[in-house]
Write a protein that binds this DNA or RNA. Structure first.
Length: 283
DNA sequence: GCCCAGGAGTGTG
DNA sequence: CACACTCATGGG
């Protein structure tokens, strides 16, 4: 199945390339390929948005892609609103095509639990390994991410052999603490309640809870704070302190689209670290 | 070999 | 509240 989705602005690399989601791969021909639910999808930039190719191309895949890329979001308006922050504005200009994605709640929860104290290539590898061993087959090369019920049957030791390290215990415990109805209920919670409930899970602290709120549950006001964000806050705003303090600063300063501000700061801080350059104006 | 990674949990001052 | 320590391992 092949079709075009009208969407903009959109840069696939900025959106799928690093950190929000971990299973999209850039192919040699410039297309991005990855599993979405139980189907394989290839995305290629087109004039009006993206050209989508899906296998096996079951019904609903169009909606799934649109939902994943949050096609309904007015990203231009969000950028204009956040650009009122003079510190943020220059960085936004280099990230016009970044969209926050909406990922599956369960896959997102596990992914960011695995992300603790690991780098992005390793996170991807852990997720690929547990998908390959325990997920339903989509193609010869790729399996879907395993459901809660699937993963619950896996002994902790076997998860450990997938290279999860100490994270195996948390994943195993969360499988037993949670089921699909819990996730469905959590979708209706307010932001603070959702955050509190996520944090009550073993292996989920402030940062993971905020990542899962933002990407998995689609709460654009969520603002995950990691080491990169601490560096950015100190360098650009002269702010440091506890997670709660920085979180409040972000909420006050960036409002309902704080998640987007976080992504702009995150990408630019990493760029700054690697290139020694800065797209933001100094304080 | 060395360093650090999109942290969390636990204990202590 | 802040800090220190441990956790288990693999990319760069």
């Amino acid at each position: 199945m092949r079709f075009e989705l009208r969407i903009g602005p959109l840069d696939l690399g900025q959106t799928l390339g690093c950190g929000q989601t971990f299973r999209w791969r850039l192919q040699h021909d410039g297309a991005w390929r990855g599993p979405l639910g139980d189907q394989m999808v290839m995305l290629r930039k087109s004039r009006a948005g993206v050209e989508v190719e899906a296998f096996p191309g079951r019904r609903g895949i169009g909606d799934a892609v649109a939902q994943h890329l949050r096609a309904g979001d007015d990203v231009g308006a969000i950028q204009r609103a956040l650009s009122k922050d003079p510190v943020l504005a220059p960085g936004i200009r280099s990230m016009r095509g970044l969209r926050i994605v909406k990922t599956d709640e369960w896959e997102c929860l596990v992914s960011f639990m695995l992300a603790t104290y690991a780098n992005i290539p390793r996170i991807s590898k852990m997720i690929e390994t547990i998908s390959a061993r325990f997920g339903e087959r989509i193609t010869d090369e790729t399996n879907a991410f395993p459901s809660i019920a699937c993963l619950r049957k896996v002994p902790e030791e076997e998860l450990r052999r997938c290279g999860l390290g100490y994270r195996a215990r948390y994943v195993h415990a969360v499988c037993e603490a949670l089921d699909e109805t819990d996730l469905a209920r959590m979708k209706r919670l307010g932001p603070e309640e959702l955050r509190r409930e996520l944090k009550s899970l073993p292996g989920v602290g402030d940062k993971v809870a905020d990542c899962v709120s933002l990407f998995g549950f689609g709460r654009l006001e969520a603002f995950p704070i990691d080491v990169w964000m601490e560096r950015a806050f100190w360098r650009l705003y002269g702010q440091k302190g506890s997670y709660e303090k920085l979180r409040r600063f972000a909420a006050d300063r960036f409002g309902p689209y704080a998640g987007y501000a976080q992504e702009y700061l995150y990408f630019n801080e990493r760029r700054y670290a690697s290139a020694g350059m800065c797209a933001f104006s100094q304080e």
